[in-house]
């Protein structure tokens, strides 16, 4: 057993009066791949956005890489630098070329020399197979290419953890595969990953554990094979029967 890199205890979050997350307990060990699934509005995205504090939780504790996230966290930028994130809508910076998108944060946050940052960016773009598009702007690329670039951009920070927030939901069916391939490669490389997705094929292939969420609670958490073979809760069975 290796140590847990993310520890969430009794975490609660409200949007106004509405409670989005109820008593979340979760431990993620290093190099594990977790897939989070569930119906929309179940709080999956909010959960992973809490992990790099794009959303603030109101109760309980979240410890990432040994640092507790709270209002007093002065070094939240340092934690975010260690936690890469890929969004549903890609969120590339449209005013910068693909290469500049990838080098911006390493240069200004990691204080990396420009040349080194560019080499690193090219390596990462190579891995997701869009190094030939490096000089183009995001607007000139297809959705799949943009999302792969977003993955490369996050990887350029050499993060310890990668969060994926429905990375394939905004894509044409044809482009989903190229993005999933990139993610599978990343998983095989040993990255710690938390992936919110509806791609059950991907979950079966790479996930160590699958979490099913509904109405802000973790309904079921099990090893992948177990999850698909013997779902325990009725809600999970219903969900799986509809999605598979």
């Amino acid at each position: 057993m290796s140590e847990a890199i993310i520890k969430i205890q009794n975490m609660n979050k409200w949007f106004g009066d509405f409670q989005v997350l109820k008593d979340i307990n979760l431990e993620v060990e290093k190099n594990k791949k977790i897939v989070v699934c569930g119906p929309s509005g179940s709080g999956k995205s909010t959960l992973i956005r809490c992990i790099n504090r794009l959303e603030e939780h109101q109760k309980g504790s979240i410890v990432v890489d040994g640092t507790e996230l709270s209002e007093n966290t002065k070094n939240i930028e340092q934690i975010r630098a260690e936690v890469g994130m890929v969004f549903q809508q890609f969120n590339l910076f449209p005013h910068l070329s693909i290469l500049d998108n990838c080098t911006l944060a390493p240069i200004w946050v990691r204080k990396m020399p420009k040349k080194q940052a560019q080499e690193l960016a090219m390596q990462q773009l190579e891995k997701v197979q869009i190094s030939d598009q490096a000089q183009k702007f995001p607007g000139q690329l297809s959705g799949g290419q943009q999302q792969r670039c977003a993955i490369a951009r996050a990887l350029c920070m050499e993060p310890k953890i990668m969060l994926f927030d429905e990375p394939t939901s905004a894509l044409d069916p044809e482009m989903i595969k190229e993005v999933l391939d990139a993610m599978v490669n990343l998983a095989k490389g040993g990255m710690t990953m938390i992936v919110v997705t509806h791609e059950m094929g991907f979950a079966k292939e790479v996930a160590d554990e699958v979490i099913f969420m509904d109405e802000g609670m973790i309904v079921e958490k099990a090893e992948t094979k177990e999850f698909f073979a013997n779902p325990k809760s009725e809600r999970t069975k219903l969900f799986l029967s509809q999605i598979l």
Binding site: R49, R80, N91, L104, A105, V109, M157
Partner: peptide, 20 residues
């Protein structure tokens, strides 16, 4: 999303505003 992306890359307030 632009704010989210910049923050998730570890940029602080000023870096985020100046570059993104």
């Amino acid at each position: 999303g632009q704010y989210d992306a910049a923050k998730s890359l570890g940029m602080g307030y000023w870096k985020m505003h100046i570059f993104v």
